Computed example of a mutant assay.
Amino acid sequence: MNTINITFQFQDGQPAQTHVAAEGESVLDVALNNDIQLQHNCGGVCGCSTCHIYVLQGDDELPEISDKEEDFIDRAVNPRINSRLACQCVVQAGGNDLVVLMPPQDFLGH
């Protein structure tokens, strides 16, 4: 099974963490499996914007953003061009490592 590394960087000053992700896992799955706090009010089904992250490296290796995901990102706090929903960032076969920036978790989207 193919794996990649996901490096989580934090805006609140926590040290970065790198964890292994298997093909088919989402960034949200990897965060939760490694006790990284990441809001996910809809349960990770692309039904809200609370798992909003910024992809700093490896975005070309992720599935293309859907219209539905784009609509929810527009509702997120401080969306940027590199914004994604962690539940939709699924590791693909043969992908490169990812680096993501976690927004502060005291602000929730919709």
Rank of each mutant, 00 (worst) to 15 (best):
I6C: 01
R84M: 06
L56Q: 15
E61R: 10
E61W: 12
V90I: 15
C89R: 01
G109M: 04
D35A: 14
K68L: 13
V90Y: 03
Q9H: 12
D59P: 08
L28N: 05
H19L: 04
Q14S: 10
T7V: 11
A22C: 10
Y54I: 03
T3A: 12
L85H: 03
C42D: 05
Q57L: 07
S49V: 01
V20S: 12
K68N: 14
L62I: 12
A22I: 04
Q37K: 13
E23N: 14
R80N: 07
Q37T: 13
M102S: 00
D74P: 00
N82M: 05
N82T: 11
Q37P: 01
I53G: 02
T50F: 08
D74N: 08
P15H: 10
L98V: 02
L85M: 09
D59S: 15
N2I: 06
D12Q: 09
I81K: 14
A76P: 00
L28A: 09
T18R: 07
L101T: 03
E61V: 11
F107G: 00
N96Q: 15
S66G: 07
R84C: 05
N5P: 00
D71C: 01
E61H: 14
L98T: 03
Q37S: 12
C48F: 04
L62P: 13
D74K: 03
L32R: 13
E64L: 14
C87Q: 01
A31R: 04
G13A: 09
S66C: 06
G47P: 07
D35R: 13
L38R: 06
Q105C: 07
G43K: 12
E25K: 12
D29S: 08
G47A: 13
V20L: 12
M102I: 14
N82S: 11
L108Y: 12
N2K: 12
G44D: 06
V27M: 03
D29P: 05
N33T: 00
E69R: 02
V55Y: 02
Q9F: 00
C51S: 09
N2P: 14
F10H: 01
I81R: 12
V99C: 02
I53K: 04
V45F: 11
Q17R: 13
P63K: 11
A22T: 11
D97P: 01
L38Y: 08
L56N: 11
